[in-house]
């Protein structure tokens, strides 16, 4: 359950924090060992592979990190599915038409075409984009990775060309994931002026009330049963009265 006080609102339980950092760790290991193989002609790649003790060890580390990420992904899908099934979790990651409208609204706001940014719920469209990228991309990487690991098994039933196709998918999807993480995710979590120097939510599990109102106004309103004043160009602190936490509200994860 979430503990809400004046300054900070709990957003993630410890399990989700651990999950994120396990994900991050295996992802980093996979990126290092994987990109070194993809760009094997570069000196840095050769240094990395040599540091791991040769190409065979590098591949071994890559494959076992891959298994770890697969387990994490599968476990997450199971936990989330059962969580939603038994009504412990809200299906807050489901993509709605509103998310596309929010993206357009936000871009219009950035361009100065509207006065107000999109008003998002528990997860905004940027977070949903990354979440589904990780889940769907993770499954794709696991499937193609296994095909590359066991090509003779795959070609017992599937055409041979599926192996180079799996490699093309694996290597391109990996590059895409890497680039999205180093641009989009790193910007949003570290360099964005709204979180600079660091978005601490993923360390503490708590978000400040100010950011909550700014970034997840719909969730905030539902959580505390209040109606926030609409933005008019500039971020405004909610008034003391309207922002008063309403006890007994049901926060949705």
């Amino acid at each position: 359950m979430y503990t809400a006080n004046r300054e900070y609102i709990r957003r993630f339980g410890p399990a989700r924090l651990v999950e994120h950092w396990l994900n991050a760790g295996t992802f980093i290991l996979l990126v290092i060992t994987g990109l070194a193989q993809k760009f094997h002609d570069y000196d840095i790649s050769q240094w990395i592979i040599m540091s791991f003790g040769g190409i065979d060890t590098t591949r071994l580390v890559h494959r076992y990190s891959g298994i770890a990420l697969t387990i994490l992904t599968v476990q997450h899908i199971l936990v989330a599915s059962f969580g939603i099934l038994f009504r412990k979790w809200q299906p807050s990651m489901v993509i709605h038409m509103k998310d596309f409208r929010d993206a357009i609204d936000n871009i219009r706001y950035y361009l100065g075409l509207s006065d107000e940014p999109a008003r998002c719920d528990r997860y905004d469209y940027k977070q949903k984009f990354e979440y589904w990228g990780v889940v769907v991309g993770g499954m794709l990487m696991a499937a193609t990775g296994l095909a590359l690991w066991f090509p003779t098994v795959v070609t017992q039933v599937l055409p041979g060309q599926f192996i180079p196709a799996a490699k093309a998918l694996h290597t391109n999807e990996a590059l895409l994931a890497f680039l999205v993480i180093v641009t989009w995710h790193v910007y949003n979590a570290i360099f964005s002026p709204e979180v600079l120097p660091l978005d601490t939510v993923i360390f503490t599990g708590k978000i400040s009330q100010e950011r909550m109102i700014h970034e997840h106004p719909l969730e905030y309103e539902r959580m505390f049963g209040v109606t926030l004043p609409r933005h008019h160009g500039k971020d405004e602190e909610p008034s003391e009265a309207s922002a008063a936490p309403g006890h007994g509200s049901t926060p949705s994860p």
Partner: peptide, 13 residues
Amino acid sequence: HPDAAANFPDSWV
């Protein structure tokens, strides 16, 4: 690859 099946050679372009 002792367990390679008939499709396997096609995995090389």
